[in-house]
């Protein structure tokens, strides 16, 4: 009988359900998160224009660098202020 030791972190990943999708963005606050890739701003400027035309309020956020996860404070700020978030890559 061979006994081996578990090399993993032995965590059980918590299952999370998706937030309910709003039927319309009318009157909703939509956050646009620029992850700081080149030309992400160009892409998001255009998205912002289109969202505003549908009656959504748009808030803009920027990650300090695309190479690292968003800082906790930024994530909390977005969660507190927005109904919906769009995270943008570009390049």
């Amino acid at each position: 009988m061979t006994i081996l030791l578990d090399p993993t972190n032995e965590r059980t990943i918590a299952g999370r359900t998706l937030t309910a999708r709003p039927p319309s963005l009318q009157g909703k606050v939509v956050g646009l998160l620029n992850i700081s890739k080149p030309r992400g701003d160009v892409f998001l400027d255009r998205i912002a224009e289109q969202l505003k035309a549908t009656g959504a309020e748009v808030l803009r956020f920027t990650k300090p660098t695309y190479t690292k996860p968003a800082p906790v404070d930024l994530r909390h700020e977005i969660a507190g202020k927005c109904d919906v978030l769009i995270e943008a890559l570009a390049d």
């Binding site: 009988m1 061979t2 006994i3 081996l4 030791l5 578990d6 090399p7």
Partner: peptide, 24 residues
């Protein structure tokens, strides 16, 4: 002093293959 989960392999389980199978 070892705290990690101990995994008992079945007698017919190949050690090497069992590690591949678990994605490790």
């Amino acid at each position: 002093k070892i705290r990690s989960r101990r995994i008992e392999l079945a007698s017919l389980e190949d050690e090497m293959e069992s590690l591949f199978d678990r994605g490790w």
